[in-house]
């Protein structure tokens, strides 16, 4: 099961070794040329001699995580986040730590021991630590060194009605869409890129775009979704189950109008539900790609993801399927000359 394999793999920003290898095993029989670049992005070139616009499809493979920065005398680990994590969600979550992926739990002073005033305050990073069960610093040092990484220890499970929960749907769901798309044949030169370090500042995508110099770029993302109780329509961003969301404006990009409208039209024509992403907060790799060199026509297609950047994220499997369908339909339309750069 692709989504399970991808979401359960380990790969905080800048330290994507495990997830990169997992993806490589999935894609190695499909690309004409498969390689990594200086930052570690995994690039798969297909059909490069075909006519038609050169297309870059990108999804980032890194996830938000944690770095161990110090070990206390009693064997508890101090950590800092890699990427944007709300410290309020951390307390009492299990994590996997270090090269051996051992279990740890994020602990803090028990609520019973806190003053009434303290209980009203969110816990700050300085009050939290990871407990791996070590009795002492010396014991902890046998397993962990400062600079080691941790991620949430969340299992992929399908729940409710056609929903799934896991860590790191942002953006392993995009990686999964790319891998499924790669298995289809298109008469187009397509480069699939699994980029690094999106979560720490859109770092990996720019060098990939510079290398590939595509005519068109499409990023597949997991994006913010808050269609829950008491949220007004303009605070939701996207609706779960209403289909892939097309970006209009975010913190780093004003979408290329003709390209985003084309994608919506393709969806409508093919009977695939499509929605517009209704917030300007957040950003994705398009922010780096569309400003590369002389500018690149780009768009983002996203799977609405509730509780993004949290330990248990939720997507709709229908949205996932529809994103796979939409991406294929968009590529077919370009294949047939329906949109040119």
């Amino acid at each position: 099961m692709l989504l399970r394999k991808l979401t359960e793999a380990f790969g905080p920003s800048g330290f994507e070794d495990e997830i990169r290898q997992v993806i490589y095993e999935e894609v190695k029989s499909y690309g004409d040329k498969i390689y990594t670049d200086a930052l570690g992005s995994l690039i798969v070139e297909t059909n490069m001699t075909a006519r038609g616009p050169k297309i870059l499809l990108a999804a980032h493979m890194d996830e938000v995580g944690f770095m161990i920065v110090d070990i206390e005398d009693h064997g508890l680990l101090r950590f800092r986040p890699l990427g944007g994590v709300d410290p309020r969600i951390l307390v009492s979550k299990p994590v996997l730590v270090g090269k051996d992926r051992i279990f740890g739990v994020i602990g803090s002073k028990a609520v019973h021991l806190q003053e009434p005033k303290e209980r009203e305050q969110p816990l700050e990073l300085q009050q939290l630590y990871i407990d791996i069960g070590a009795h002492s610093r010396e014991e902890a040092e046998k397993y962990i060194a400062p600079g080691d990484l941790a991620v949430f220890a969340t299992k992929y499970e399908e729940i409710g009605e056609r929903r799934a929960k896991a860590k790191s749907f942002d953006d392993r769901v995009g990686c999964a869409v790319l891998i499924e798309t790669m298995r289809k044949k298109f008469d187009l030169p397509i480069v699939y890129a699994f980029t690094v370090q999106e979560e720490t500042g859109l770092r990996g995508a720019g060098p990939v775009a510079y290398r590939i110099k595509p005519n068109l770029a499409l990023v597949v993302e997991g994006t913010v979704c808050f269609d829950v109780v008491e949220t007004p329509s303009h605070g939701q961003s996207t609706l779960q189950g209403a289909g892939p969301a097309i970006s209009v404006v975010d913190a780093k990009t004003i979408a290329h109008r003709a390209f985003r409208e084309h994608i919506v039209q393709v969806g409508t024509k093919e009977g695939i539900p499509v929605q517009l992403r209704r917030t300007i907060g957040g950003a994705n790799d398009v922010g780096a790609i569309h400003l590369t060199e002389m500018g690149i026509i780009s768009a983002a297609i996203s799977i609405p993801t509730r509780y993004i950047h949290a330990p248990s994220q939720m997507i709709s499997l229908d949205d996932y399927d529809n994103t796979v369908r939409l991406l294929e339909a968009v590529l077919r339309s370009i294949e047939q000359g329906g949109f040119s750069a």
Binding site: S233, V248, V249, I254, R278, I280
Partner: peptide, 17 residues
Amino acid sequence: LSVIDIDEDGFLRIAPL
């Protein structure tokens, strides 16, 4: 001002560019 949402009564919700 970029329109991010249109409500049932036709009011437009906005965000700044």
